[in-house]
Simulated assay, not measured.
Amino acid sequence: MNNQYFPNEEGKLEYILQIYSMDMKVKALWVQNAYEEYSNLMSSGEFNVLLAFRKATEIINHSMAIVRMVEEAGFVKDPRERAKMRERIMLINNRWEVPKPPKKLRAIRNSLEHFEQKMDEWVTSSRELHVIDFNIGELSTGTGSIANVNYFRNIDGYNFYFRRKPVNLTEIYNWSKEVSMCLQK
């Protein structure tokens, strides 16, 4: 081994990798728990809109914490920190074959994390300033006095939308189960 930042001694490296593994396992468990709670909300007679959105957001956020362990972050200014990140990713992916996350997950998480920028974008580019937030059900284009509707957050079954960009919560849940199984090796 020729690691620049992580230990080269096999025993020490394995110990450190197990710490990363434990964190990813915990996050995967949190995704699964939040998904099960979300599913219970969806099937219960007493539906709580804000709780459903909170659970959907938890699913996305916890899964992205796993993604950030195994894939490069978009922007890391410090070259040394970028090199550490790349070495960590290489070591984790060499130790376990962590499955690729759902394709649309990163874009949704990024939009949620930069919500204020998305609000600014909407305010400065929207002609009518019609907005629907925390919507449950199908997206529509709007008619009459609410034409040009801008949806911020929307849930339609197991699809979570942010500004009409979807991610499927069931895909994230299934991926988190694959991650859990992969890390058992």
Rank of each mutant, 00 (worst) to 15 (best):
M90A: 14
E71A: 10
N61P: 08
F75L: 12
I66K: 00
S43D: 09
A52P: 00
K77A: 14
Y35C: 04
M42I: 07
R86V: 05
K84E: 07
L41W: 06
V70E: 04
I92R: 00
N48F: 09
A34M: 04
L51P: 04
H62L: 11
N94S: 13
D78M: 10
V70I: 11
V67C: 05
N48I: 11
V70D: 02
N61K: 14
N48C: 09
I66R: 00
E37Q: 15
V76E: 04
M90E: 15
V76D: 03
R82T: 10
D78Q: 11
M90P: 06
S43R: 10
L41C: 10
E71C: 08
A83R: 06
K77L: 15
H62G: 06
E81N: 12
S39G: 10
R88C: 06
I92H: 00
R82C: 09
R82Y: 11
R68T: 08
V49G: 05
V49Y: 06
I66D: 00
E36F: 11
I60V: 08
E72I: 10
F47S: 01
E71K: 12
T57A: 08
A56E: 01
G45K: 06
D78V: 09
N48M: 09
M64P: 01
R80H: 13
M85E: 15
N40F: 10
R82L: 15
R68K: 14
G45Y: 04
A56W: 01
G45L: 05
V76M: 05
G45R: 04
N93F: 03
S43E: 11
M69W: 08
Y38M: 02
R88W: 03
H62P: 06
S39K: 15
L91S: 01
A73M: 12
M69G: 08
A65R: 10
M64V: 02
I89K: 00
S39E: 15
V70R: 02
R80V: 15
G45N: 07
D78L: 09
S39F: 13
E36V: 12
L51Y: 08
Y38S: 01
G74K: 13
V49K: 11
I92N: 00
